Computed example of a mutant assay.
Amino acid sequence: MKNVKCSLLAGLVSLAAVCVPHFAGAQEINAVDASVRWAFDKASENATTAEVSEPAAVSATSFDLGSNLYFNGTQGCSNETLGSATLSKLNPRVAIGRAEEKDAYVVFSVIPKKGIAFTPKKLKFNACKCGTSGGTLNIYAVTGDKRVEVAKAFDPVRNNDFSAAEYDLSALGATTERVEIYFYIYNLAANKQLAISAIEVIGDFVGTPENVPAYTISAQCGMEGAGSVSVNPSGSSFDEGTVLTVTATENFGYHFSAWVDDEGNTVSVENPYTFEIVANTSLTATYTRKNVYALNLDVVGGGPTITLWSSFPRAMSWKESIIMRKVQMCNFALSITVF
């Protein structure tokens, strides 16, 4: 996933795009046991694209985290048989109790070029638990409307050791569509981590790449400090017809409004927005500011002062002046001031 922080843009900024044609005379590909591998050993500095042994067969590769996961550094591990490894630690923002909660996953994607059929055969990866007995994985392979269970309740080892896993992907079969490998994490507290690395999909690429045009994509924020923008799969140039998803995040005090083009025309109000690229594309995420007020909580009769921030729309009956309320809690009162 390509993550672009908002730059100092007062208005709408776009990048010039140039069509990148493919060259004629593409060679037939018959790559057996080709490798698509994400090292995944640098946490937030991980490369979003994979190392591909047959790059002429692949249009794009990427990974993406569900919104309930974030990187929390790396874990160094060693194994008497396997040697040493560095894994990226995944931390839930909110504790994950049950399996396959929609936002508690990391997904790895491979898009073959047009004219190429990809037959995934094996999945390999390393995994470990970090300072906890919790942390379990369910893994699925997806292409088109087909979804195959790869692993159920995979339970990696703890701490300084790591598990090296290998699973069969042959049930997915040959496909010309995007292949996605979902790692769903569950049974993990918000202050604990599960770590993975060396995610590798092994399979066969067969066919002749079609001579199709490629187009560029750029995406950016339209307001300083409003949020960030990502493109999935990551990259700046894609084959015609590749399905892309752009996502805008909202910082506190801002609300996403729409995606607009270079001329300021609204392209979509959906977020995330998914589309097929058929031309050079530049999208800007526009935002509106929310009305933000401070909420100060002062302990009456001694003790610390607590300051919280919250947001209230003007439509509510909050006066834009001081409002005093007292709440009896245990043996002391709280004085709440809103302004």
Rank of each mutant, 00 (worst) to 15 (best):
K326C: 14
E51T: 03
P120A: 06
C130K: 04
F40S: 02
E166C: 11
N3E: 13
A258W: 00
V292Y: 06
I96M: 13
D155I: 00
T74V: 15
I322A: 15
T284R: 01
Q27V: 12
T208G: 11
K5D: 13
R93D: 14
N232F: 14
L65F: 12
D145P: 01
F205L: 05
L8I: 04
I202N: 10
T247A: 09
A95I: 12
V269Q: 10
L12T: 09
A56D: 12
V212C: 13
P92V: 15
N126I: 01
P213M: 03
T176D: 04
E320R: 06
P213Y: 00
I277M: 06
I199K: 00
V229N: 05
F275Y: 15
F118K: 00
P92L: 15
L12Q: 07
S335C: 09
A95S: 14
T49V: 06
W38D: 00
A85H: 01
L308P: 04
A219Y: 02
N3C: 10
G303I: 07
T284W: 01
V18P: 00
F162R: 01
K2V: 13
I306N: 09
K5L: 13
D168F: 10
V106Y: 05
F23W: 14
A60R: 04
G241A: 09
A127T: 08
N265I: 06
L90W: 03
S67R: 14
A248F: 03
F275A: 05
V36E: 00
S230A: 13
D262P: 06
V338R: 01
G115R: 10
A16Q: 06
Y105P: 02
N91K: 15
G135K: 03
V292K: 08
A10G: 15
R158A: 15
S197P: 03
A31D: 07
A39S: 12
T49R: 05
T86N: 11
S321D: 13
F63G: 01
F71K: 11
V327W: 11
G83W: 11
N46W: 01
N3W: 12
K89H: 08
V150I: 07
I181Y: 00
V269E: 07
K89T: 12
V243I: 13
L334F: 11
L15P: 08
E177I: 03
I181E: 01
D103H: 15
E51D: 07
V299W: 07
